[in-house]
């Protein structure tokens, strides 16, 4: 596949940019700088663009904190995919990472529950968790995911693709209406 094929494929999938590979916190900071720069040239109100930044922070740090480290080309780490795109009237952000099969059921239940909440319930739960301070050095208690749902103003799409007897690939897509 040539670079032109890749270009056409990304365009046909409405992709603005993406990243695949090993994730570190410094890399997240670089992705945010790149996103900020891209968003300056793209249409949409500031508040929505800020929501995109917040969602990327939580989504990528979620991978770093809770994703399963896997080995690829001799490098053990949090391998992932991150994609950002723009369709008519909306931006979309996709995250994908490996997780242990033992975590799939609990995560699926938690996300389904968060998705079932109305926006005012999301805000109330967010403040409740923040006030109780049930946060560890890895975040936790679902505060980051609640922020993602609050900032997108919509439910998230998620799925788990089985990889082998130990791992699945966790896919999450968040849309932000313009």
């Amino acid at each position: 596949m040539t670079a032109f094929d890749q270009y056409r494929m990304m365009r046909s999938h409405h992709l603005i940019f993406g990243y695949r590979g090993f994730l570190t916190n410094e890399l997240i900071a670089s992705i945010l700088t790149l996103t900020e720069s891209k968003l300056r040239d793209l249409p949409g109100p500031f508040k929505k663009k800020k929501s995109i930044i917040n969602i990327i922070i939580e989504g990528l740090q979620n991978i770093l904190y809770h994703g399963e480290a896997v080995e690829e080309n001799g490098v053990l780490g949090h391998h992932c995919i991150f994609l950002m795109g723009q369709r008519t009237n909306e931006y979309f952000i996709q995250f994908g990472n490996f997780i242990s099969n033992s975590h799939v059921s609990a995560l699926s239940k938690k996300l389904s529950y968060f998705n079932s909440l109305k926006q005012d319930q999301v805000q109330k739960l967010y403040l409740d968790i923040l006030e109780k301070g049930e946060i560890t050095d890895k975040g936790g208690a679902g505060l980051g995911i609640l922020r993602v749902i609050r900032d997108s103003g919509r439910t998230m799409d998620f799925s788990f693709v089985p990889v082998d007897e130990r791992q699945s690939f966790f896919c999450m897509e968040i849309k932000i209406s313009m």
Binding site: L32, K50, Q61, G133, I135, L143, R147
Partner: peptide, 13 residues
């Protein structure tokens, strides 16, 4: 400018 939710809990503290 921006922060993660883990930082928010520390700001509140």
């Amino acid at each position: 400018q921006y922060f993660n939710t883990s930082s928010t809990s520390h700001f509140l503290r």
